[in-house]
Write a protein that binds this DNA or RNA. Structure first.
Lengths: 147, 147
DNA sequence: ATGGTGACCTGTGAA
DNA sequence: TTTCACAGGTCACCA
């Protein structure tokens, strides 16, 4: 997904496009999450092996799937800005709860004032190691072209 | 405590300074409250003999002790505003659960539009009758000078 | 639908 | 630098 200003702003949440959420993300129902409707905590590994934990839940009020807790930290530490892209992948070999999850991002803007992310001469990405899995579960959520 | 804008605003809660909460307030643990972590209901008597009941609990997420239910009513009826002070006292003659609790407040601002509180020529307070107990368990939480 | 309440979350400043 | 308190928020539930 190409992130919106709101996705990287003060709202501290990323809206996950509904169709992708319902196709590829773990369910957020009470039955699936174990009795409450508070969503689930998901661990995503980035290309550097760093694990990002986000709360993933459904907001009835806006009929939207969102990543909330943990997201603002991701934005800050990666220096993500509006127009940049994020993509999510999963290993897809077991059932949802056992799948390994991955996150990738690509910064479209140069001269970013990212917190501490390494900035290369090229457009910066969160690495594309996950592509080695050959899965494109989240296909369409973001461009998947590597560097 | 000198109350903050948030303490008297729409959040309907008072943050009890942690150090004082842990020293002088009843414990909020599951063992003490009887199995749930929903906090406890405490009755505080003011200088007029009026009893104010507040829910007192611990918020894990912010690592804070708070008074929630009942607090907004107290704010409304006393006309408490940011900068005013509230103080809590307890009789301290038995164990925590048997102690009698008191609340006192002092309004630092004149010309308040309090709901129905009597306004004197002096700074208004919630009376200082509790001082007759001679205890200052909450010493340091607020000035204890009477009017 | 709406407001009150409860639990959860985060940025920021200070220790 | 890291931790911590907390002021200022959010959303979900329930009556």
């Amino acid at each position: 997904k190409a992130v919106t200003p709101s996705d990287v702003g003060k709202l501290n949440r990323l809206v996950v496009p509904k169709q992708h959420a319902e196709k590829h993300f773990p369910p957020t129902t009470a039955a699936a999450t174990g009795s409450n409707g508070k969503g689930v905590l998901l661990n995503f590994e980035d290309g550097e092996g760093k694990v990002w934990r986000f709360r993933y839940s459904y907001w009835n009020s806006s009929q939207s799937y969102v990543l909330t807790k943990g997201w603002s930290r991701f934005v800050k530490e990666t220096g993500l800005r509006a127009g940049d892209t994020v993509a999510f992948y999963r290993s897809a070999y077991g059932n949802d709860t056992e799948d390994q999850l991955f996150i990738d991002y690509k910064k479209m803007n140069k001269n970013d004032g990212a917190a501490d992310a390494a900035v290369s001469d090229e457009n910066e990405t969160g690495h594309v190691a996950v592509k080695l899995f050959g899965v494109d579960i989240a296909g369409g959520m973001a461009g998947s072209s590597g560097g």
